[in-house]
Design a protein around this nucleic acid. Structure first.
Lengths: 200, 200, 200, 200
DNA sequence: GCCTAAGCGAGACGGTACGTCAGGTCTTGCA
DNA sequence: TGCAAGACCTGACGTACCGTCTCGCTTAGGC
């Protein structure tokens, strides 16, 4: 097991790390992922290129970390979905919000960047599932289990499948721009999913 | 209003066009989309770079055309889905086949390449929907309408939504590698979708 | 005999070639050979770095060519040394001029640069002897042969040796800064050399 | 007027100093002066880079010191040239030995390195003259004075000039590789120099 | 059937960014 | 407090491709 490099993480400059992630995030918003370069990140962060290459294996990894930092700061205290007792209403609220987020140009570019990377990089995909998707998924399942207890969802429903059916069409439509992402679509998805998994 | 370029399509060399598309397809399979370069395509095709720039606006467009050529040769005679009269069985057959295709490394790289391009290029996304997705979608709807007539599907079902619910989870799982693409998953999707849209 | 690259010299841009050589010469004068970089040459010449790497194997080669161009433009019509009939007076004139040239800061930097390169590069040394030293040496020998015919120099004198004895001390003293390069020194060298090779 | 650096020489690690000079000398022999780097010296010597920068102002200075150490160990007891009473024979012996040394690849690289440095660095040139050349020159003059007393050399001969005429052609030819450095050349130089400075 | 304008292969060009190497400075334990 | 270790910013390296631009050479259409 011959490591080629083993930089001493204890000596790592927190100042540089933060500056790099911030610069990456800003640049994605400004010029888009496709035109993002390591040199530009380094320049904007006031950092040597080597400092980036020392700590990240690829441009995609930097971008991933920069977005991860963003998402982590959001859910510092854990993510909780609304629970009014009405699963349909709550899911519509959440899905409409997600759809709106996709439409926000501020969010659009980074998320497209992230998806581009994930599609083509196995390891990044794994990191995404663990670090970014998992906490969100767990929060959603929490709400679904509550609905199961309330008898609004089949007790034996496969929650992973439920979430796939609920969210994948939304994401897909956004990625491929194959249709409008309006409230009607969000509502229709919720209704469809609940219909498929309603208690017998 | 003088166009800057107006290449005379009637003089276009079919030999070069074919060689370029073939080279592009081969290279995607060999080195992947990310490392694909115009120079490599030109070299492999035995063609000057200018000949590529003359006829395509971007690398993505070449790649798209090369995969389009592939898909067109497949459905020259039109696509027809099996219709045994049992919509559930037929859809399971089709979805299992699609899942298997995704698992085939031969198909995997080009489709990932295509998705990468489409996500980040509006025009390519439109071209994809028109040239590649539309015929497929139409064939699927054909089969679904047959099921509606047979009373196996709600007569007022939104077929676009149905197809989204049926296929998006599959594509998503494949793109993000978020779970196994086995027969069980394909079957579960078909059952879920049909449950959501069964006649009242 | 597998050549790795074989750029087509017939397509070479004369404009670029000239700009590069000029830029190199100017920069040597301004910042010195040690701090000279290919990037700076390219930038000053308004040229891509690749255009330099395409046509020259090393920084030293560029510098050499730039000085060669300089020397060639000087002796377009051939070099002729003064011949008043008095070899001692003529040589003193020439050596004093050479010493003065060495003292001129304008000439100093390029020549030091050249020597630095030549010392450490066999091929450059060969090129120097052929392209730059040889014509000069031939001109000097011409004058010496005239002196031999006039009976001012031993008829069987080894002219190469004579020139070494005459010039090497001058060059050496200049390179190592081991003593003053004044007229007295030039005169002394001439007298010494002539004394050693006077006719018996 | 506070010096920016004032390392306390009394605390200097002799172990490090020696290791650095040894490493420098070895590396010059192995990879040549041009490719020599401070980092490589530090790594080979098992020393931090700062320890080098603390005690030497430039790479050239390290190299110089490393070669100085070499030459000092050689002439600890003072240098004495052979004195058989026959100045011509003695000088031929010495010059032939010098020529042979130049041909020895072991000696070649360091001396070329040294010359490269000296040519471009005034201070190093001065140090060279004082520390390395001077003792050698003095030893040679000693022998020449003996020859003057023996009537084999003009009593009023300029010994510095004599040494220049004798050695510079040899050094020059070696540096520029402009001719063979054989015994014949060494002998011819001695004969020429003696002819120029023989007693009247 | 010839002429001529176009497409074509080739590849040089001015550039941008790559990923690496080394320079020289600064910081952190260890001895 | 001198040292080894090595992270840091800087800047140059030599390479790979970009998209544009000539070069001669086919090669097809209009005359």
């Amino acid at each position: 097991m011959a490591e080629r490099k083993a930089p001493d993480a204890s000596r790592r400059s927190e100042r540089s790390r933060t500056a790099i992630l911030t610069a990456a995030r800003e640049l994605i918003g400004e010029i888009g992922y496709g035109k993002l370069t390591i040199e530009a990140i380094a320049a904007r962060a006031g950092v040597g290129k080597q400092t980036i290459y020392r700590w990240w294996p690829s441009k995609g990894a930097v971008v991933f970390d920069s977005l991860l930092a963003l998402s982590e700061q959001a859910d510092g205290a854990g993510i909780v979905l609304p629970d009014t007792g009405d699963i349909e209403a709550d899911l519509k609220t959440v899905l409409r919000a997600t759809a709106a987020e996709f439409a926000d140009p501020e969010f659009e570019k980074p998320i497209r960047a992230l998806n581009t990377e994930i599609i083509n990089d196995r390891e990044l995909a794994a990191a995404y599932r663990e670090k970014m998707a998992a906490p969100m998924t767990e929060a959603k399942k929490q709400r679904l289990r509550s609905a199961q207890r309330a008898g609004q969802l089949a007790a034996d429903a496969d929650l992973d499948l439920f979430l796939d059916v609920l969210y994948a069409p939304l994401t897909q439509r956004w990625l491929l721009r194959s249709g409008p992402l309006d409230d009607a679509f969000a509502d229709a998805l919720v209704e469809t999913a609940l219909r498929a998994f309603r208690p017998r």
